Structures are given as structure tokens and as C-alpha cells.
Amino acid sequence: MGGRPFLPDGLPVIDRVPEHDNAFAATGHGMLGVTLGAGDRAPLGRVYAHRPPSRGTHAVPLRPGVLGEAPGLP
């Protein structure tokens, strides 16, 4: 099945992809991606609408260095 992406702090990444206004990321749920991914609709909708996160939303913005360095990429 492949790897399950997650960050060291366990929080997902829900944000726009830098330098791409029409691309979004909702990742980092680890082994619970299918289960927790459905809950990304509200936070991702707020990102899409340029609104601040709701109170109680626990997610990490997608910024350089958040996901670390990908091996083999420039």
C-alpha cells in the first residue's frame, strides 16, 4: 500500500501549495488518512475562500521546510 505521510508533531497539513494558487494540500494524516481525510472539507474550504482557520482547527500551514527535504529532488 505504500507509505503513510505524517509530520513529526502528528498534525496534518491543510493549505495552498506555495507558488500555485489553484493547488491545495490536505495530507499528513498517517495511517488514518481515509478516516480523517473527510474532516478536511471545512478547513480546506476556509483556505480556498481565503478565510482564517476556525477556532480549534489543528493543522500546519504548508510552508518551506514543513515536509522536510524529499530525497532525489532538486
Score class of each variant (00 low, 15 high):
residue 1 M to R: 12
residue 2 G to R: 05
residue 2 G to C: 05
residue 2 G to E: 03
residue 3 G to A: 04
residue 4 R to T: 11
residue 4 R to K: 11
residue 4 R to Q: 12
residue 4 R to W: 14
residue 5 P to L: 00
residue 6 F to Q: 06
residue 6 F to L: 04
residue 6 F to E: 05
residue 7 L to K: 02
residue 7 L to S: 02
residue 7 L to M: 04
residue 7 L to I: 05
residue 8 P to I: 08
residue 8 P to H: 11
residue 8 P to L: 14
residue 9 D to V: 09
residue 9 D to E: 10
residue 9 D to I: 08
residue 9 D to Y: 10
residue 9 D to P: 05
residue 10 G to N: 04
residue 12 P to S: 07
residue 12 P to Y: 10
residue 13 V to D: 01
residue 13 V to C: 06
residue 14 I to N: 02
residue 15 D to I: 04
residue 15 D to G: 03
residue 16 R to E: 02
residue 18 P to H: 11
residue 19 E to F: 15
residue 20 H to V: 02
residue 20 H to W: 06
residue 21 D to F: 00
residue 22 N to V: 02
residue 23 A to Q: 03
residue 24 F to D: 01
residue 25 A to H: 08
residue 25 A to M: 12
residue 25 A to L: 14
residue 25 A to N: 04
residue 26 A to K: 04
residue 26 A to L: 04
residue 26 A to P: 00
residue 27 T to R: 02
residue 27 T to I: 14
residue 27 T to Q: 09
residue 29 H to Y: 15
residue 29 H to L: 14
residue 29 H to V: 06
residue 31 M to D: 01
residue 32 L to F: 06
residue 33 G to Y: 05
residue 33 G to T: 07
residue 33 G to S: 09
residue 35 T to C: 12
residue 35 T to P: 03
residue 35 T to I: 15
residue 35 T to L: 15
residue 36 L to D: 01
residue 36 L to C: 03
residue 36 L to N: 04
residue 37 G to P: 06
residue 38 A to C: 08
residue 38 A to S: 10
residue 38 A to M: 06
residue 38 A to W: 09
residue 39 G to V: 04
residue 40 D to V: 14
residue 42 A to T: 05
residue 43 P to V: 02
residue 44 L to K: 05
residue 46 R to F: 01
residue 47 V to M: 02
residue 47 V to A: 03
residue 47 V to S: 02
residue 50 H to A: 14
residue 50 H to M: 11
residue 51 R to C: 00
residue 51 R to A: 10
residue 53 P to Q: 09
residue 53 P to Y: 11
residue 53 P to A: 13
residue 53 P to E: 04
residue 54 S to Y: 09
residue 54 S to T: 03
residue 54 S to Q: 13
residue 55 R to D: 13
residue 55 R to E: 15
residue 55 R to A: 13
residue 56 G to T: 10
residue 57 T to N: 08
residue 58 H to S: 12
residue 59 A to F: 12
residue 59 A to K: 07
residue 60 V to C: 09
residue 60 V to Q: 13
residue 61 P to E: 05
residue 62 L to V: 01
residue 62 L to M: 06
residue 63 R to D: 07
residue 63 R to A: 13
residue 63 R to C: 06
residue 64 P to R: 10
residue 64 P to D: 03
residue 65 G to L: 14
residue 65 G to S: 12
residue 65 G to W: 13
residue 66 V to E: 12
residue 66 V to L: 14
residue 67 L to S: 08
residue 68 G to L: 08
residue 68 G to T: 08
residue 68 G to I: 12
residue 69 E to L: 15
residue 69 E to S: 14
residue 69 E to I: 15
residue 70 A to D: 12
residue 70 A to P: 14
residue 71 P to D: 10
residue 71 P to W: 03
residue 71 P to K: 10
residue 72 G to I: 15
residue 73 L to D: 05
